[in-house]
Amino acid sequence: MSINATLIGQMITFTLLVWFTMKYIWPPLIGAIEERKEKIAEGLAAAEKGQEDMERAAKRAASVLKEAKQQSADIVNLAQKRANEIVEESKDTAKKEGERLLEAAQAQIAQEMQRAQEQMRKEVSALALKAAGQILSQEIDKAKHKELLGKVSEQLGQA
């Protein structure tokens, strides 16, 4: 149990061991550990960033989709509206055309009627004149009553 020179030998061994550890063992190992820690931290940060990017992209995609939907709905609405308009317009046009045709027809009818009336009047007056002529042929001298006859015939023509 005595203390002896073994102590000195052990101290030398110990010093050598500590020196060696300090010089050749500790720095590379702790360096590797620290570096790996950094790498892992970087990796985790990158993963987190990727996740965030993905979320952001998903959000943007959703908003784009929503916008597109909105747009398509708008377009459909617009088309519907336009179609309605076109239908209305064509209805309008058709109605106007019809009215115009009707008016033209009516005008023609009126014209025809007038012409018929005119003709009838002429014929009636001619008939009346003829009748009156026949009645009066015995009594009226054509030459004598020319003025009167003309007046009557004019009045008839006017009626």
Binding site: S2, I3, A5, T6, G9, Q10, T13, L17, Y24, L29
Partner: peptide, 29 residues
């Protein structure tokens, strides 16, 4: 006396020290 050396202590601690160095040196390399 004082200059006595415990060979077993010196031997085993040196061997174990070498083992320690060898293991960690391998790892460090």
């Amino acid at each position: 006396g004082f200059w006595a050396l415990h060979l077993d202590t010196l031997f085993f601690s040196a061997v174990l020290g070498a083992l320690f160095i060898w293991f960690f040196k391998t790892a460090a390399e």
